[in-house]
């Protein structure tokens, strides 16, 4: 760890940037090309909350936090993903 910032954090950041680009591509009408437009768009919601979880886990350092915080944070992400996806698809 000679450079200070853990390699893991850098890798996660690059993954987040790539995922953002992917979501934008999906949203910019390309999702409709693949058929079943609404389903693809609905996928964007779990994807964004996966990004949220990564930011929390790696950047906020929830990953190395006590189990209670990890559980609460993870539950928050899962509940919101489920609720928002459900409402969108209703």
């Amino acid at each position: 760890m000679t450079r200070g910032i853990p390699v893991r954090a850098t890798a996660v950041w690059m993954l987040l940037m790539a995922a953002t680009a992917l979501t934008w591509w999906l949203g910019a009408d390309h999702g409709a090309d693949l058929g079943g437009g609404r389903t693809w768009v609905a996928l964007a919601i779990p994807v964004v909350f996966l990004k949220v979880y990564l930011i929390g886990s790696e950047f906020m350092e929830v990953r190395t936090a006590p189990r209670a915080l990890r559980l609460v944070f993870g539950a928050w992400v899962m509940v919101l993903t489920a609720v928002l996806t459900t409402i969108y698809l209703l």
């Binding site: 999906l26 949203g27 999702g31 964004v48």
Partner: peptide, 12 residues
């Protein structure tokens, strides 16, 4: 999340 929901999901 705001970007994904407002700019992408709502616009699809």
């Amino acid at each position: 999340v705001i970007f994904t929901l407002l700019y992408l999901v709502c616009a699809a």
